[in-house]
Amino acid sequence: MIVFDLECRAGGHRFEGWFASSEDFASQQGGGLVTCPTCGAPEVEKALSAPRLTRKGNQLPAVSAKPRAETAQSVASGPLPPEAVAMLKAVAAVQTEMLKSSTWVGENFAEDARAMHYGEKDHAMIHGRASPAEVQGLIEEGVPVAPVIVPVVPPGEVN
């Protein structure tokens, strides 16, 4: 995966985008699939950024003996201000509560959402996976969809 710093030309909003390759970004951009998450504008370009260099495998730092929860907390609160950490925790809590009354439909998300929109299925709260192209198609058809803000581990994939 490659992480690009992107910039919305319409509003000057900056954000990150993850792509399989530079060609994948160009293909998605050319197909109108890359849009600003703040204002929805399709005029998105790569922003100037410093390269992200990683260590070689033989230069990895020593593994810490900290418990896993403490390590996750130190990573989450590292560069973020405490207010941002609190906000993210609140968003995660609200999402967790919403997902309790939602059904995981996996790869059938786009098909099920569309069927509910057109009255072919009873309306219900669902969540699942959809490709950027499927999401774009749903949006163009007026099907109400929203991203899951905090990543969700699908049922059956928990180790």
Rank of each mutant, 00 (worst) to 15 (best):
E97R: 10
V63L: 04
L88W: 03
I126D: 03
M98D: 11
C36W: 05
F15Q: 03
K89V: 12
S64A: 00
G106T: 00
E43G: 05
E70F: 03
L138Y: 10
H123I: 09
S131G: 13
E120T: 06
A93F: 02
G57S: 09
G17A: 00
A65P: 02
E157V: 03
H13I: 04
F109C: 10
T103C: 05
D122I: 02
T35F: 10
G30V: 12
S27C: 06
A113L: 04
V153G: 00
C8Y: 10
K100A: 08
P81F: 05
I149E: 08
A69M: 08
E7D: 05
G40P: 01
G142F: 09
G137M: 01
F15P: 05
A10T: 15
I2Q: 15
G31H: 09
A72D: 15
A76G: 14
P155D: 09
L138I: 01
C39G: 11
V44E: 12
P154R: 00
A130R: 04
T71W: 13
R55N: 10
L80D: 13
E70C: 01
R55T: 00
C8A: 07
C8L: 05
M87E: 15
L88S: 10
V63R: 08
L48V: 05
V150S: 07
A62I: 14
T35N: 14
M98E: 11
L48P: 13
V91S: 01
A84M: 07
G12S: 05
L53W: 12
T35C: 15
A133E: 15
E141D: 07
K56I: 12
E140M: 09
P37S: 11
V148L: 15
R55G: 10
R9G: 11
T38A: 15
D5W: 09
A90M: 11
S74V: 12
